[in-house]
Simulated scan of single mutants.
Amino acid sequence: MRTVDQEQHFFCHNKTDVAWEKMSLLRKINRVLLVLLIFMVYLILYSRMHRAPPAPSHTDIRAESGVVGGAVGGAVAEMAEAEEDILVVICAAEERMGAAMTTINSIRSNTEANVFFYIVTLHDTVAYVRQYIEKTELKDIRFKILEFNPKVLKGRVRPDSSRPELLHPHTCLRKALLPLRRAIYLDDDVIVQGDIQDLYNTKLKPGHPAAFASDCDLPSEVVRTMGMQTTYMGFLDYRKLEVRELGINPSDCSFNPGVFVADIETWKRQKITKHLETWMQQNFKNNLYSSAMSGGVATPPMLIVFHGKFTTLDPIWHVGHLGWSPDTQYSEASLNEAQLLHWSGRFKPWDYPCVHMELWEKWYVPDPSRRFTLVRPNS
């Protein structure tokens, strides 16, 4: 006869097994692909070191290229390789498809630069991505769809039943083309009000593989409501010896991984991806940071690996945490000056309640299939 603890362990263990077997559930989890994509970008960048593709049977990602109504395949690959192209990587989760398309539309509408989008999604969502693009004003964008296979996630993260939607942080990608010297990653809860060319041209300090937005640069009223979530203490478990041995001051300012510019050569030279993988494995073994405490397992390894060696983005290129509270309003001046707005947090601009929804909705492209709809007070 099992004890209560044994019953709970048995239940959680079997619940986890079922979750891995039913990978279709990933399509119903709002945040999973956002977390996946952060680490996907790391490995795409790292893949530049591995020119030879793996055997097809081991492919974790499949690329489908296109300029809707125009060339596909090799022609698109050639365009993506142009030095003047700005590569933007973004995720397109099924339940947040309208969000990703809004981000894309805000970028294309505010620049004359040549932008090439890498759009990452699951197999069952590829057709949805294409339809959204083909049947809307986005039909002129240049893009490549990266089809992600979530089965490779099994065994790479420690289950945490308190926040199951944040448990999918990492996988190994062995096949992707990224020949450019740098790339931009954006979460799908972002709109770009400025020229993406300016963000792309961010000058990184010598030896810095990436530029992030420091949480020290948040407005004071936002910092007060966020508490420890603006410092390393809010993400790492300082009760663990491995964390304390890092020598990182727990009051050091954290940074936001939802927007960053990466220098590929420096990233490769410093073996950033290998270090990130190491810390993911360490957490799997020793549970160095809980997803409940840190809001997911994507940010902490980045905070560790990039501590002291990232360039800080100009604050106007990341006015963030607009989704932290449905009540905290930003000043009109700061919103107008902002080149990029980020609704990081639980309260998203396509949902309700949320602050400053009208700024996001300005770039919203309605879903031609009507699967993605806005939630508003009168809806």
Rank of each mutant, 00 (worst) to 15 (best):
K175W: 00
D140K: 10
S294W: 01
F212H: 01
D314T: 08
H208G: 01
L45K: 03
S220T: 10
G227Q: 05
M1E: 11
L241E: 15
D263E: 14
A333S: 13
L303F: 06
F10E: 13
R370W: 09
D17C: 12
T273E: 12
L177T: 06
N283P: 04
P250D: 07
F11L: 08
C12Q: 13
V126G: 05
G258A: 04
L199P: 02
S220A: 12
D85C: 13
C354N: 04
Y128M: 08
L122C: 07
P300D: 02
L167G: 08
K151Q: 13
T103F: 01
L43I: 00
L166P: 02
I191G: 00
N201S: 15
L25T: 14
M79E: 13
I191S: 03
F117G: 03
E242I: 09
L241N: 12
R156V: 05
E137A: 12
P300Y: 09
N286C: 04
R174V: 04
R48Q: 15
P301A: 12
L43H: 12
T16E: 14
I38T: 09
E95W: 06
D60Y: 15
G70L: 10
D367V: 03
L36V: 14
E245G: 01
H9G: 02
F117P: 04
R62F: 15
C172G: 04
Y128F: 13
V76P: 03
M233N: 07
M101C: 09
T16K: 07
V126Y: 02
F143W: 06
V89S: 06
V68I: 10
I264K: 11
R376H: 13
A262S: 08
T125L: 07
S57H: 07
V157E: 15
M101S: 05
A176F: 10
Q6E: 15
N114D: 12
D189G: 06
K362C: 05
V192D: 02
K175H: 14
Y42K: 00
V4K: 15
L204D: 06
T171I: 03
W360H: 01
L177K: 12
A77D: 12
E147P: 00
D160T: 09
A80N: 09
S57G: 09
A63Y: 05
V4C: 07
N105T: 05
L374T: 06
D217V: 04
L87W: 14
I61Y: 11
A213C: 11
Y330M: 10
F11W: 09
S220Y: 00
V355L: 02
G247Y: 08
D17V: 15
G70I: 02
W343F: 03
S251T: 14
I316F: 10
I196H: 03
S47Y: 00
D124F: 14
L186N: 01
C91Y: 08
I44A: 10
P54I: 11
N287G: 05
Q281S: 11
F235C: 04
Q270R: 11
P368E: 04
L146P: 00
V297Q: 07
K151A: 13
M228A: 14
V129W: 00
V129E: 05
I184H: 05
G258V: 04
L138D: 03
V305G: 05
E134C: 08
C253K: 07
N249W: 06
H170T: 11
R142W: 00
V152K: 10
P219L: 02
P179D: 06
C12V: 13
